[in-house]
Write a protein that binds this DNA or RNA. Sequence first.
DNA 1: CTGAAAGCGCTTACAG
DNA 2: CTGAAAGCGCTTACAG
Lengths: 337, 337
Amino acid sequence: MKRPTIADIAREAGVSKGAVSYALNGRPGVSAATRERILAVAERLQFHADSNARALAGAKTRVVGLTLRRPPSTLGVEPFFMELISGLELELSRQSYALLLQMAPGRDEELAFYRRWFSEGRVDGVLVCDVNVGDPRVSTLQELGLPAVVIGPPGVSGSLTSVWSDDEQSMVEAVEYLAALGHRRIARVGGIPQLAHTAIRTAAFAGVCARLGIADAVTVPADYTGEAAARATRKLLGGAHPPTALLYDNDVMAVAGLTAARELGISVPAELSIVAWDDSPICRLLHPPLTALTRDIGAYGELAARTLLAAIAGEPVTSAHGAPAHLTPRGSTAPPR
Amino acid sequence: MKRPTIADIAREAGVSKGAVSYALNGRPGVSAATRERILAVAERLQFHADSNARALAGAKTRVVGLTLRRPPSTLGVEPFFMELISGLELELSRQSYALLLQMAPGRDEELAFYRRWFSEGRVDGVLVCDVNVGDPRVSTLQELGLPAVVIGPPGVSGSLTSVWSDDEQSMVEAVEYLAALGHRRIARVGGIPQLAHTAIRTAAFAGVCARLGIADAVTVPADYTGEAAARATRKLLGGAHPPTALLYDNDVMAVAGLTAARELGISVPAELSIVAWDDSPICRLLHPPLTALTRDIGAYGELAARTLLAAIAGEPVTSAHGAPAHLTPRGSTAPPR
DNA sequence: CTGAAAGCGCTTACAG
DNA sequence: CTGAAAGCGCTTACAG
């Protein structure tokens, strides 16, 4: 099927191509009557301007880019990314933007994609997530001057705008809750240590435990997979002074921890309390349902997209915190025996 | 930062813009020595051709599009889509293609996106998933002549190429397994009835049950959410002749079913066997671990992407079945008491 | 308020 | 093997 061009519209409407462009883009330069006529023709012909021609002539691409690093099958497991993307899309769609998505095996490839998108003029701006400490993408994007929003803690975002939650506050809430239940031996199975937000949580965990006089508040690093979490859990529970409460940096690891504990003959919550960071439908469906740090991940996505689109539009933008994750107590936590 | 153009490369290398284009695209028309020189300059300047200009001048966009329908929060829950996207990306990346992703609230919006992408010249081809019976996207894409691959059963794909699994075969395997264990009362909690593959599974389930002499092989429709599955499970188990085995159309519903049964005081697998369609890490992490129909969803994605890119390249393509889901017996199934 | 024209950065026949 | 030129479909100053 052949696509109509502004030349076709111009001919049908009996005006110049320039007039069609003005009318379509809602700019001054055509009378109301002419505009009406042009829009009617465009509507009838199901006309949509070629985005390549528009972009080449100086208009926006109306596309933003996002890369996702794909460690061996961590991605599919976690609802986090899909929820984030859902939220992003919600706001992007409202403003007629689309998302260009690319999975990258590693950090270098991610960086290369951002560079290429810039060079090829593919995107108006980009989103960056899973930020490492000293992530090279931050400095590169600053150099390029491509509008960018970091979905991650502000500390590692350089001069880029960032959108994240206050993880420290949530960590404090979770640990204080466990302490209030009477727990004195609390440990944590953490996320990938290189990630900036993991470092923040680790520091916050150590900090609040020290403040509450909880000794040996150890964090065992893992990689968000159930296997690693099960190993870490067995190790922690097999020690001389096993913890009575465990905090997991994502829901999948918490599920694995629950099962690992059960296999060791340790009952939850009677002998062990479990808290998951990030709540998903699965947490509610388990027996016992998992106490979790709940946050609206989709809302972060929306906020990030809104911020990026504002930056692209040339509006001044500032880094912002979304609502922090808050504790949702369920059946997996109880006072220690 | 300013982006270099072929004019810059041409000047530096002392050749015409045409020569640069030929060299960059690996076409005849320049000597080996000149080509070398041009490529070296391009490399040094980190040059990547503007994709808008290329597309406008007749080259490919190197982008394919995919819409995802987003029913109220079903998406984030299921690993299916993220795994599918991972697989798609794997093959797309290999061939330097990117994925344009758009979430759509409903079927009409999905259709509009495909139309728009075509009109705007944004994509070289599209992928279609979650195909309904009589899905309007199929006929529209046929009309437009936009290369397209349906990720779904061939029966509803019209003249479009399709990639799917043989769900009937998998259903037969699952039911025969349960029958071999001795189950005579088997029921199913199905997916969204409008989806083409749901219809296929429903027919297959009824068919194999009839063949094996299993009466009352009822399918209760649900929507892939845990809540709906829990309701369906309670209804099925509360009847006069409750089933001794339940089949769920996705893993999330199976998890919900497991918990719902437990809440009713029904033990799994002693009093009730449970089978999940689609296996995810969660299935392995539960107690008991869920027997599941396992398939490599990422591989479907790869196959779909490969097929689409072949179609875009003008190669003849044919619909294909990926490997069917096969049964992975685990702790949630046993002979009935 | 409108029309004619230049230009965005490529690709691709067409002459030399 | 190479260069000069047209053209892809838009947007946007610039004259009228």
